[in-house]
């Protein structure tokens, strides 16, 4: 009987190791194939002739896209969350606002991309551009910033608010000076996770921001802009030489590294502020 229990335990353990193995296989494969190409000139030059040169415009493009996306989604998301938690009356309007934001979280990114294409690119005439791409990414992560901010604001004890109000502060002063300050880390964690999501998103950027191989830095927010995921997509699917595969791996490695830095930072913040002494 004891033997059987142990066998099952080992079986269960091995399934969780499989999940870890999946991560390591993918990351190690990308690392071993991509590390060779990474040097300063790869990181700081522009691509040319499809599969040569570096990925500087792609890195900058990705950062700019995520920057616009955050500039759009963070203020709107945090403001919506503050309203929903602190101001919203319990009525049908609030309920439907909540419902719609929940809906937005469920919309597949490709559908949001199609919307960005028809609404921003064509209807508003923004063209395939950094602005269109950034805003569409913003639509995509907006529900995550709302939800993360809501959760973070809810964790601040109501007694803080009461104390602040009792000292004569107005409602907004209390929210701004007390609630937001306490909720900061949670909000930042949520934003960082949204940022990681936006950075790795391909379909949306492919439809709205550019073809990924742009060899120039964008001069205005209405220029098409290159990005790492689309660059990887182009080289991975359309390239057929060592040069293109190794660059796609190199770009993947850069993208994964950027992502890991962001999510480690998010985990660090979360562990520091929230679950350090919890049940685990």
């Amino acid at each position: 009987m004891k033997v059987r229990e142990n066998v099952v335990k080992i079986g269960l353990c091995s399934t969780s190791l499989m999940a870890v193995a999946a991560l390591f296989i993918v990351v190690a494969y990308v690392f071993f194939n991509g590390a060779g190409i990474i040097n300063l000139s790869f990181l700081l030059e522009s691509p040319y002739r499809f599969e040569y040169g570096g990925i500087f415009p792609q890195i900058i493009g990705s950062l700019c896209l995520v920057g616009i996306c955050l500039l759009f989604a963070v203020p709107l998301g945090v403001a919506s969350a503050i309203y929903l938690v602190e101001y919203a009356p319990d009525n049908i309007v609030t309920a439907s606002v909540r419902f719609f934001i929940e809906c937005l979280a469920g919309i597949p990114s490709i559908v949001i991309g199609l919307f960005g294409l028809v609404f921003l690119v064509y209807r508003l005439g923004l063209g395939i551009s950094m602005l269109s791409g950034g805003l569409t990414l913003g639509f995509m992560i907006l529900p995550w910033t709302v939800r993360a901010s809501e959760e973070a604001i809810k964790t601040v004890p109501y007694s803080y608010m009461e104390a602040s109000l009792a000292l004569g502060a107005s409602k907004w002063q209390s929210i701004y000076g007390v609630i937001l300050k306490s909720a900061y880390p949670g909000i930042i964690t949520g934003i960082l996770l949204g940022m990681g999501k936006a950075m790795g998103e391909t379909a949306v950027v492919l439809l709205t921001a550019g073809s990924g191989l742009e060899s120039f830095l964008p001069q205005s927010i209405l220029d098409p802009v290159a990005s790492l995921p689309v660059y990887i997509y182009m080289l991975a699917t359309q390239g057929h030489t060592e040069a293109s595969y190794s660059r796609a791996f190199g770009a993947s490695l850069v993208l994964i590294t950027m992502f890991l830095i962001i999510s480690m930072f998010a985990m660090f913040l979360r562990n520091r502020y929230i679950t350090r002494n919890s049940g685990f």
Partner: peptide, 26 residues
């Protein structure tokens, strides 16, 4: 074990899908 496996699993969420696709392709 938990403190190693859990973060790994959460990191797996974030491997960009394009990288997984490329891995699949190659």
């Amino acid at each position: 074990v938990h403190s190693i496996v859990k973060p790994c699993v959460e990191m797996l969420v974030g491997i960009p899908s394009i990288v997984l696709g490329f891995f699949g392709l190659m």
